[in-house]
């Protein structure tokens, strides 16, 4: 393609947006609605996942050691456990730290009577945190094979609940993405059908004059991409304000949920959403315009 033709094509693509204002507005609105719905849903999914992940990271398996085990042997066991792929971190808790923590959690002022005494002597342990709580059973099976471990405390119920929540979120995500995609395609195909009437004559003239398919298609595709970009940018701006204000509102009004709800920062959220939304918007615009023109190229 000549540079002059390329420039002309780009210019026509841009001008087409203003030539068919109603069609352009309808398409932008359709794409914006799809991207907006996607953005809302995406915000819900990533934040629920973030909260679940935060909850998962606090679930630990605790192992206690046989009496008389040396510090060196305990360190060796710790090194072995750390090498497991499902293990995120291993924290050693000495008997003193365990007793201090117990006093704070359960005894409060009544702990004074135990001055100089540690009822939890010999209860030094490892708290093992996992990357994926669903692997807890396999980790426990492994720990049971290690010599020198006297007892293993596991939290099956919590691990199962979190694991189930993750599975449900995955299925719900897939279902909603499927529904959103179907709704988007339905809306886009209707908008495209409206645009076909506007385009039919122009495409037919180009074909009868002897334009190649590529030249016929290009201005419409450029128009589609530009409309897709605008259609994606508008809901992104709206989502930015909604998301940032919603976080502040929930934190202010529902401070009690602070430990449960772990919001993704606005920077992290938008660094993920922007590329996805732009690809979605441009993709819908591109496919819509290709589909429109393709139906009329066989003149």
């Amino acid at each position: 393609m000549r540079i002059s033709t390329l420039l002309y094509t780009c210019k026509q693509g841009f001008k087409n947006i203003f030539r068919n204002k109603m069609f352009s507005l309808a398409t932008i609105a359709t794409i914006a609605a799809c991207v907006f719905l996607f953005g809302i849903f995406y915000a819900i999914v990533v934040n629920v996942q973030q909260s679940v992940r935060a909850a998962e990271s606090s679930v630990a398996v605790t192992v206690f050691f046989d009496e008389g085990l040396s510090q060196e042997q305990i360190m060796l066991i710790g090194d072995e456990i750390s090498k497991r792929p499902e293990v995120a971190s291993v924290v050693f808790v000495s008997a003193e730290e365990a007793w201090d923590s117990f006093k704070v959690d359960y005894l409060g002022e009544y702990a004074d009577g135990y001055e100089g005494d540690n009822p939890l002597e010999g209860s030094e342990n490892y708290e093992i945190y996992m990357n994926d709580v669903s692997k807890q059973s396999s980790l426990v099976s492994y720990l049971e094979t290690i010599d020198g471990i006297r007892e293993i405390n596991r939290s099956d119920a919590t691990a199962n609940i979190l694991s189930n929540i993750n599975t449900v979120i995955s299925y719900v995500s897939l279902a909603i993405i499927g529904i959103l995609l179907a709704v988007s395609l339905f809306l886009i195909s209707n908008t495209v059908a409206m645009g076909i009437a506007v385009r039919r004559e122009e495409i037919a003239i180009m074909k009868l004059i002897g334009a190649k398919d590529f030249v016929v298609r290009s201005p419409f595709v450029i128009e589609g991409i530009l409309i897709g970009l605008i259609g994606a940018a508008l809901p992104l701006i709206a989502l930015y304000f909604i998301y940032s204000n919603l976080i502040l509102y929930v934190k202010d009004e529902f401070a009690v949920l602070d430990d449960i709800l772990k919001f993704m920062s606005i920077e992290d959220f938008f660094s993920r959403l922007i590329p996805i939304a732009l690809i979605l918007g441009v993709g819908l615009g591109f496919l819509g315009s290709m589909f429109t023109v393709h139906r009329h190229l066989r003149v």
Binding site: M1, E201, I209, G210, A211, V215
Partner: peptide, 24 residues
């Protein structure tokens, strides 16, 4: 006639040359 109603006379005629990639 089958002219492009949103363009002027010059653009309608030039259009026939543009789409077959005649230099500007």
């Amino acid at each position: 006639f089958r002219l492009l109603k949103d363009r002027n006379v010059y653009e309608n005629v030039a259009f026939a040359q543009r789409v077959i990639e005649v230099p500007t």
